[in-house]
Simulated assay, not measured.
Amino acid sequence: MKIALVGIGKIAQDQHVPAIAASPDWELAATVSRAGSVEGVPAYTSLADMLAAHPDIGTVSLCLPPVPRFFYARELIAAGRHLMLEKPPGATLSECHALEAMAAEAGVSLFATWHSREAAGVAPARDWLSGREIRRVTVTWKEDVRRWHPGQEWVFEPGGLGVFDPGINALSILTEILAQPVHLSGAELLFPQNRQTPIAADLRFAHPGGAEVSAAFDWRQTGPQTWEIAVETASGALRLTEGGGKLSVNGEDIAPEGEGEYPRLYARMAELVRAGASNVDLAPLRHVADAFLLGRRETVAPFDF
């Protein structure tokens, strides 16, 4: 099947392009970007021009920042194209619900992707936790924004999510591995004096079984980067590290198998298109929205790249 990529930035070059190239399901047939391109692939700066030139491209993957994404997505759905959304699927929950309704009415597949759920350790972690009594969950997601988003000012603008840009990856794993859903009960959000989105956040969740569930996100971590979820149960402990890529149970490393996060996403998108189905799970984004609603705001030192 032919697919187009819209937004040829770092994540597209690092993950989407190689995943499509290695896929038995997809052929990258066009790109749309103001600056980026992929060698050997027709490139456009206008979405309308690409759609007019390629009526044979039935699916489009959007790799744009969340704020402008809705308008592109709406145009693509109106053009009858199946649509794959990079995380988060929109700047607001209302946008996502609107796109879901549009896609259903147009009869096209819509996939709100959460790449961290496809990390090798996530599915076996979910399976091991199933049926176990959970007592404590501790999420620690700390990284260096200068390393992962160098000079990308948009992450600190309204809609850019701030530290929730990586933190939502942790929330996507959390909502995948816990059999009983949690909801946010409190939060502290740390905003640099010169920024519109938080650079750190501490979250607390209510669990139906009374387990203690918390998360600490920070974008100021230098040196080793930390992406870890630790779960204590009545019958042992589980630890996911490296963003879900590594799993240990009761101190013993488990060797999960997998082909990589983005190849799995594109395989899943192929399944959805062939089945005429959609997958729009907004649980991680709901937690972020709740954090902005409930979070106590604290001002910290200015931050500059």
Rank of each mutant, 00 (worst) to 15 (best):
C63D: 02
E153N: 04
K2G: 08
V249A: 10
G245H: 15
P42Q: 09
R286C: 05
P158W: 05
E27Y: 09
Q180E: 06
W26C: 09
A237E: 14
Y262R: 01
T45I: 05
A79T: 11
L93M: 15
A21Y: 13
V288N: 06
A206R: 12
E157I: 00
L99V: 00
L161P: 01
D253I: 05
R220P: 02
T175I: 01
A4G: 08
R136D: 14
V231C: 11
H287P: 07
P284V: 00
I11G: 00
F292E: 09
I8Y: 08
Y72S: 03
E271D: 04
A277G: 03
R220W: 05
T226I: 15
P88F: 00
F292L: 11
P198A: 13
P166S: 02
I254V: 15
F217V: 05
T226V: 15
A73R: 01
N250G: 10
G159M: 00
Q225Y: 06
G9W: 06
V139N: 10
T140P: 07
P208L: 07
H183V: 11
S23R: 10
R74H: 12
R274W: 05
A29K: 10
S116T: 06
D202V: 11
A112G: 00
F70H: 10
W26N: 07
G151A: 01
D281P: 03
D56C: 03
M1Y: 08
E298H: 15
W154V: 00
V231K: 04
R297S: 07
G260D: 09
M269T: 00
R204M: 05
F205L: 12
I168H: 01
I173V: 05
V155R: 03
V273G: 01
P263G: 11
A43Q: 03
L93F: 12
D202K: 13
P89N: 13
A179I: 04
I177F: 11
F156W: 12
A275F: 06
